[in-house]
């Protein structure tokens, strides 16, 4: 990695490195900010990424605390229940997110799920926090376009593992091309031999259930190892062989 690829806070992004599609407004993602009239400068460290087709620029950012944004799938912990919503925690020591009792598939006042304190829920962010209005984030377990749960809902059994935000983003890349970029094969390799369920939360959590505590642990630990040590594809292959042999 040559030094010129990496930006530090306060560095201006040279105009010629930014995409310039005359038909679309330039969209800037994490790590960059716009100083009127036409300066784009970095607010974090990392390499600059650009997409000329979508006229977008952003920075490779991994680490830090998760900041809620609309439609992100996340794993939350229920910490209590008020009149019509569960209070949920997205990250520790931040304000609660509300998960309305009726925002589960087929939920009515009588059939709504009864969630105890500490229960885990796989949910989507409906509205992120609006700081100036003093509004906390709101969650939902229903896809608004279909009215179905689409995989969201209470997570029963299994185990929760902590992963980095970058790893969560990589695991959630599902389109064929994005999957190649994500360079994660460990799940596919383990999935060829074992049956298990995983849920990935953008807030840096991974939930695994293989109906068998030993296998659940093996899968979760394999993925955290890939994350912590930054294993490349060949190393993941070797790790998968090792894990399958032991389990």
């Amino acid at each position: 990695m040559a030094y010129s690829d990496v930006l530090l806070p306060g560095d201006e992004v040279p105009q010629e490195q930014l995409p310039s599609n005359p038909k679309k407004a330039l969209s800037i993602g994490p790590g960059l900010r716009h100083i009127p009239p036409s300066t784009i400068s970095a607010t974090s460290v990392g390499a600059l990424n650009v997409d000329w087709r979508r006229n977008a620029a952003w920075m490779d950012v991994n680490g830090g605390r998760y900041l809620p944004s609309t439609n992100d799938p996340i794993i939350v912990r229920v910490t209590g229940s008020s009149g019509e919503a569960f209070n949920c925690q997205i990250t520790p020591y931040t304000s609660y997110a509300a998960l309305p009792h009726l925002s589960f598939q087929d939920a009515t006042k009588k059939t709504r799920p009864q969630l105890a304190n500490g229960a885990l829920v796989y949910a989507r962010i409906a509205t992120p926090a609006a700081h100036l209005l003093h509004i906390d984030p709101e969650l939902t377990c229903i896809d608004p376009s279909t009215g179905k749960s689409e995989g969201l809902g209470p997570l029963k059994g299994g185990m929760l593992f902590k992963i980095s935000l970058g790893m969560a983003r990589r695991l959630l890349m599902t389109s064929k091309r994005a999957k190649e970029d994500a360079k994660i094969i460990i799940l596919d390799r383990l999935g060829e031999k074992w049956g298990f369920e995983v849920a990935v939360g953008r807030n840096g959590y991974l939930w695994v259930d293989a109906n068998d505590i030993q296998r659940t642990m093996a899968v979760g630990r394999a993925i955290t190892e890939v994350d912590e040590q930054g294993l490349v594809v060949q190393e993941q292959e070797a790790l998968a062989q090792k894990v399958l042999k032991q389990g």
């Binding site: 390499a47 490779d60 680490g63 890939v226 294993l231």
Partner: peptide, 9 residues
């Protein structure tokens, strides 16, 4: 950063 990008190989 180099350590963080290791997975890209």
């Amino acid at each position: 950063l180099k350590g963080q990008q290791r997975w890209k190989g």
